[in-house]
């Protein structure tokens, strides 16, 4: 065996990697380098990029719209992640203790399968101030144009869309918890709430942390929803999130260099957040092992 193991698969190895390396070089590595370069240039898509050093970054510091975009995105991420994770945790725990039904799980997954564009349109319609069914039902007139409500609504709509999916991920983690723990706890007279706090929650912590990291990174990339709920027009300042701001700078105003600089900031923010969260993830290995 060891003789075979020591073979050198140099030629065939790189052949196996060829398509992936090609795709990576052209559409990941090269554009990453180019993106960094653009962020140091004045580039309008029509001219040749001209080097301007740190000008874009200096401009960014004084750009109120940029800070506003960062702020509303942060607000969105907090409302979205907190509501979505708590609801998903609750749903997963209920499913875990009640049923193994595949049909139920499949039904909860439906909103995840649907494009965010469709979800945005559907809720723009349900929340239409005059004709929307939700407003009709609740006797309200809130919509994505209400400055105070717009962002929480966008966040809740996306929580609605992703709660089922998140719940299924957490549920899969709960299935790993040995059943006998619940049986002995039950014999000892522990309540369901107590079992959730002392058994389920500590034992799924690593998966919960991983789900949090992944959904938070995804959450920062909110774009589709705000791009459609205003009928194809630009969102109001309260919902002009960072992704939309980059898109607007690049493709409405043709400030490609500046857009790249804003995108660089997003890279750094996400990098720091992921690093912090992964550190916390490592510090919280499951008590199971």
């Amino acid at each position: 065996m060891t003789v075979v193991r020591r073979r050198d698969d140099r030629r065939v190895g790189w052949l196996f990697l060829l398509p992936v390396i090609a795709g990576f070089q052209i559409f990941y590595a090269y554009p990453t380098v180019r993106g960094v370069w653009y962020s140091l240039t004045d580039y309008s898509l029509l001219n040749e990029p001209t080097f301007v050093g740190g000008d874009n970054y200096r401009k960014l510091i004084g750009d109120e719209q940029f800070w506003n975009a960062l702020k509303v995105t942060g607000y969105y991420v907090v409302v979205n992640i907190v509501s979505q994770t708590l609801l998903a945790l609750g749903l997963a725990a209920l499913m875990h203790r009640l049923t193994r039904s595949v049909v139920l799980r499949a039904a909860l997954l439906v909103p995840w399968l649907v494009p965010n564009v469709t979800i945005g349109l559907l809720w723009a319609w349900l929340l239409d101030p005059d004709l929307g069914f939700v407003n009709h039902l609740l006797g309200t007139t809130v919509s994505f144009n209400s400055p105070n409500w717009a962002m929480p609504l966008v966040a809740l709509v996306n929580s609605w869309a992703y709660t089922g999916y998140t719940a299924l991920l957490l549920y899969a983690g709960m299935l790993q918890v040995p059943q006998h723990l619940y049986e002995s706890a039950s014999i000892d007279g522990a309540s369901e709430v107590r079992m959730f706090r002392s058994i389920t929650l500590p034992l799924i912590r690593p998966i919960l942390a991983l789900v949090l990291v992944v959904s938070m990174i995804g959450s920062f990339q909110i774009f589709d929803t705000v791009a459609v709920v205003y009928g194809g027009k630009a969102p109001i300042p309260e919902t002009r999130v960072i992704y939309y701001y980059i898109y607007q700078q690049a493709f409405t105003y043709f400030h490609m260099g500046y857009a790249a600089a804003v995108a660089m900031v997003l890279v750094v923010v996400l990098g720091v957040l992921t690093f912090v969260q992964l550190r916390m993830l490592r510090a919280s290995r499951s008590d199971l092992t």
Partner: peptide, 27 residues
């Protein structure tokens, strides 16, 4: 498969998980 540079190549590809799509989308 075993060949020199394998783990480095893998590491670089995994590092790209950290780059948000919008950054590469512009270029």
């Amino acid at each position: 498969l075993r060949f020199p540079g394998r783990d480095l190549a893998f590491g670089i590809i995994v590092a790209a998980l950290m780059v948000p799509p919008i950054f590469t989308l512009l270029p």
